[in-house]
Amino acid sequence: MSEEEEEMFEEEEDAEMPQMEPDQPEEGEEQRPEGEETEEQEGEEQEKIPENPLTVEMLPECLSLLSKTGEGLAHAYIRLDVHERELTNINILKSYIHLRFVDLSKNSLKDISPLSALTRLLVLKADFNLLTSAKLDEMPFLQMASFSNNKITSTEGCNHPMLEHLNLNNNEITNVTGLNPIKLSRLHTLELRGNKLETSAGIYLPNLKNLFLAANTLKQLEGLERLPRLTTLHLRENQLEKLDGFSADIINLQYINLRANNISAVSEVEKLACLPKLRALTLLENAIAEEDEYRIDVLIVLPKLERLDKDEFTEDEKNESKELAVTRAEEKKLAQLSTDRNGCNSTHYKSICRNYIVLVYRETTLE
């Protein structure tokens, strides 16, 4: 991965995860429990949303891109853009089977099942709605689907054979289930930022290249060995203390973002040494990054690393790490020899003691 691509991914995460200040109660206003306030607000929100279905009258200004259909004897519009129209119902779309590009973003939709009739659909954007599920019938040509900023609780129902990019950022998913590795053989990018995942288990996608799991509550990594083609892994803003779960089977992983986790020891970073192609790593906002010899220590355990926290290692750093690595190896060897020598002396002493006891016993018996 190039430095430009790495910075692009960093900028995307910064843009998608703004830091929000908590609302403060006004003077004299009683502050209610967080959960209670949320439920009340949701109830009020649902009551305020009036029915606003997509109608035939709206469609002319929303349809575009005329294209041939069938055997080329007829034409139909294949692009629909109805974003930000406060829509609550899209049942009318069942009849528009030739649509290939659909943008439903920023509405109040709770159900997109009518889209299952659009078997020619290529691109779907349904961000910023009120969806609790992304489930659709199998769409034979769907290549990109985005459902970010909804209330989706499950990854079920996303098995579309041509799907390459799936975005489920900022939802309420607690675990990954139902992703079929056979049907999703073309999926190369999976985005699950800003959910409620505690583990990476359930992501068995052999051809996946980019995995975004930032801003979850990850405490452990599982199943990564099932992602042999993974090149980019974003784990920013989670709760990882250990870096168990990495394997030499992940032969293509080049970049890992571990910013703002709970990594405090270089011994954890050393667990990444099994990754043959790892070249870039981000560890900012971890306890380990506060150590004086942080960059050198990381380079010693990961000598093939080229960039740490976006900065390339200098020649001076590389030379220093090599010298320090040799020094530490010699110290470790001397310490081991000392331990072995002490062990030998201890064994010899025990042998002498045993021989003395046998001798005393024999003399006592002869008397």
Rank of each mutant, 00 (worst) to 15 (best):
S346W: 05
D340W: 12
E315H: 01
D311R: 10
K332C: 10
E323M: 09
T347V: 05
A335V: 05
E312V: 09
N345Q: 15
K333N: 02
D340F: 11
A325R: 08
E331I: 04
A325F: 06
C344E: 11
E312D: 13
C344K: 14
N342V: 08
S338V: 07
T327R: 12
K332R: 14
L324T: 01
E320W: 10
K333A: 12
E330Y: 10
E317H: 03
D316P: 02
A329W: 08
T327Q: 13
T347I: 04
E312H: 09
T347Q: 08
K333Q: 09
A329C: 06
C344H: 07
E320M: 13
K322G: 00
D316I: 13
Q336H: 09
G343K: 07
A325H: 01
N319W: 01
N319K: 07
L337M: 06
T347R: 12
Q336L: 09
T314Q: 05
E317W: 10
E317L: 14
E320A: 11
C344L: 04
E317D: 04
A325S: 10
T339P: 02
S321W: 15
L324D: 01
G343W: 06
E331A: 15
T314N: 06
D311N: 11
C344S: 05
S346G: 07
E312F: 03
N319Q: 12
E330F: 06
S321T: 03
A335R: 13
S346D: 09
E315K: 08
R341Q: 09
T327N: 08
A335F: 11
R341N: 14
N319F: 01
E320L: 14
F313W: 04
E323N: 04
N342G: 11
L334C: 03
N342F: 11
K322A: 10
E317N: 03
T314F: 11
L337K: 10
T339S: 13
S338C: 14
N345G: 06
K310F: 14
V326R: 10
E320D: 10
T339M: 14
N345D: 11
K332F: 07
T327V: 05
E320T: 09
